[in-house]
Amino acid sequence: MQTVEHETFAKPSEVREFPHGKAELLKVGDSVIGRLTLQPGWRWSNDVKPIAGTDSCLAPHFQYHVQGRLAIRMDDGREFVGGPGDITSLPQGHDAWVVGDEPVVVIDWYGATDWARAEEDAGHE
């Protein structure tokens, strides 16, 4: 049976900070939703790769882009930029970086659990 829950990013369940950014996580039922705030200069391969210990991000993501522009390059070479109002669905195997001088904010509905965690702890990134 579904229950009523109310959570807010004003009081996240967990916050993970890393160079040039942070992941705020909310636990809602059996799900974890993340709000990622990435500052200008952030790049996964520079700022999260040392934490994850993998060549590219191995966590799949389903994200809503709230603010800023985020470039994404898949391991197969496909590349695009997500901006406010966009939805991105990413399989594992990608890099990403902030484009421009505005911070990026995305809501990650899938994959947030393993953001900025070591591979042996997470099994994804």
Rank of each mutant, 00 (worst) to 15 (best):
W97H: 14
R69L: 00
A96D: 15
G85N: 06
E17K: 11
H20Y: 12
I107P: 08
E119W: 12
K49A: 04
T113D: 05
A71W: 08
V98N: 14
Q2P: 14
Q2D: 09
V28F: 08
V99E: 15
V81S: 05
D76V: 08
V66I: 15
L26P: 08
A23P: 05
V98M: 13
A96G: 14
R117Y: 04
V4W: 09
P19C: 06
G29D: 09
V15C: 06
G41E: 02
T88V: 15
E120F: 02
G21H: 03
I72L: 14
W109C: 14
V32W: 00
S31L: 13
P60N: 07
I107C: 04
L58H: 11
R117Q: 13
C57Q: 12
A116T: 01
E79N: 04
V104M: 12
A10S: 13
G85F: 07
L90D: 03
F9I: 08
G68Y: 06
C57S: 07
D101E: 15
V104W: 04
A52I: 02
D76E: 07
I33E: 11
A118D: 14
S45H: 11
T8G: 05
L25R: 09
T88P: 00
G77K: 03
V105K: 01
D101L: 03
E102M: 01
V99C: 09
N46A: 02
L25H: 07
V66L: 11
G41Y: 10
S89R: 04
K49V: 02
E79G: 05
A10E: 15
P12M: 01
G53R: 15
Q67P: 00
W97L: 05
A52Y: 05
D76I: 10
M74T: 06
E24V: 02
V81P: 00
E119Y: 13
G21C: 03
G41N: 03
G34N: 04
S13T: 12
A118C: 05
Y64K: 04
V28D: 02
P84C: 06
D47T: 06
V105Y: 05
I72F: 13
W42S: 10
Q2M: 10
P40I: 07
G100C: 05
I51E: 08
H94Q: 10
S56C: 02
K22N: 05
L70Y: 13
F9G: 11
G85L: 07
V104P: 01
D101R: 08
A52P: 03
T8W: 01
V98I: 14
E5I: 03
I107N: 11
W115D: 04
R73M: 12
K11R: 13
R16P: 01
V4M: 11
S13W: 02
D108Y: 04
E24D: 14
T54Y: 05
G93A: 11
I87W: 13
H94P: 02
E14P: 00
G29H: 11
E5A: 07
D86Q: 00
S13M: 00
Y110G: 10
W109G: 14
G100W: 00
P103T: 07
S56N: 09
A116N: 02
S45Y: 09
F62M: 11
D95Y: 06
N46W: 15
C57D: 14
S89F: 07
E14R: 08
I87A: 08
